[in-house]
C-alpha cells in the first residue's frame, strides 16, 4: 500500500478526485479535438488524400471513432492504476 493510501480519508479522497478530474479533462480535450475541431476545416483537410481517403471525410467516418475507443480503454486502465495508488481498488475487496 502506498503512502497516499495512508493519508487522512478526506484528504485522500480530495486528491484522488482531483487527479480523476484532471484525467477526464485531458481526455475530453482530445475527444473535442478529433471530432468537433476538424469539422470547420473539413474542406482544407480533404485536400490531403491518404490511400484514397480525403482526410476530412476520413476523420468523420473512421478516424475520430478509433480515438474514441482507445480513449475509453485508456481511461479504464488509468483509473485502475489510480485506484490502486490511493488504496481504493475494487480488487482489494
Amino acid at each position: 500500500m502506498s503512502d497516499l493510501a495512508k493519508l487522512p480519508v478526506a484528504e485522500r479522497n480530495r486528491r484522488y478526485w482531483q487527479e480523476n478530474l484532471r484525467l477526464i479533462s485531458i481526455l475530453l480535450v482530445i475527444w473535442f479535438a478529433v471530432s468537433y475541431l476538424p469539422v470547420p476545416f473539413v474542406e482544407a483537410l480533404n485536400n490531403i488524400v491518404i490511400a484514397g481517403f480525403p482526410l476530412g471525410y476520413y476523420m468523420g467516418s473512421q478516424g475520430s471513432l478509433i480515438v474514441f475507443v482507445v480513449e475509453i480503454f485508456y481511461y479504464a486502465y488509468a483509473m485502475n492504476k489510480l485506484d490502486a495508488k490511493y488504496g481504493l481498488s475494487d480488487r482489494d475487496r
Binding site: I24, L27, L28, W31, S35, Y57, G60, S61, S64, L65, F68, E71, I72, Y75, A76
Partner: peptide, 16 residues
C-alpha cells in the same frame, strides 16, 4: 457523418 460521430462519441462522455 454527424450521425456516425454523434452515436459513437457519446460513449466517451458515458465512460468519463
Amino acid at each position: 457523418l454527424a450521425y456516425i460521430m454523434g452515436w459513437t462519441g457519446g460513449y466517451v462522455l458515458l465512460a468519463l
